[in-house]
Amino acid sequence: MHFKQNKVLWAIAGLVYAFLYLPLLIVVIYSFNDSRLNAEWVGFTLHWYHVLFADEQMLSAARNSLVIALITSGIATFLGTMAGLAMYKYKLRLLPVLVLTPIAIPEILMGLSLLVFFVTLNFTMGFVSITLAHIAFCIGFVAIVVRARLQGMDEALVEAARDLGATPFNAFRLITLPLIMPGIVAGALMAFTLSIDDFVITYFTAGAGATTLPLQIYSMLKIAVTPEVNAISSLLMLLTLALIFIAGKLAPGALHAE
């Protein structure tokens, strides 16, 4: 590809990255802001980090959110990949509808529905009910990305492997899986993002005493969302990034399409 035209594209990409990072920059900078308001720069302080480390409720909410998001993205990616594969390989009627509807249906209806459902089953609400609900709305996102990756893929490779005597499972593990890995990774990232930031469905499926970070933060809306929230957001981002790098070191190539 010509370098010249890449330069124009890189400039556009740079602007898009700037668009993505401008608000984040403000989020991080304002976590050091010496004002309760989260709206204008006053002066540098570490006050909000001190407040945060003394705030047991906020920290445990963040811990809950992280654990729920990790479990959710794991299971939703597994099930969503299967759904994406199935939709690509077979002519199915019900599955495509069931994959799309959780994305289309208003969150508030889904949240209330799940609440009524869990109450009817006499299921104690808490982390498990939140996680089950999150998985339900994340599967579709993963399935759609995985299918988009598969569409137009060269089937010849898989068939060649089968001709050489590979079992269906081995053909999948050695050929298909590495080929669709970028789609799976993209889906997992989306599932994690959706889960860690969800408010509406979490609100209705959370039980007494089970708080996640978005629930904690939304309840602050009325009084003031203080820079303590910027502080926990900044730290959570760092922590997640660190987790991913450790995972990358422990299992090199897990993220790559070989």
């Binding site: 984040l24 989020v27 993002t193 978005p214 969302v225 929230v229 957001s233 900044s234 997640t240």
Partner: peptide
């Protein structure tokens, strides 16, 4: 990455 900070913030 920016989307792991809270939506409201």
């Amino acid at each position: 990455l920016p989307f792991w900070s809270n939506f409201l913030i």
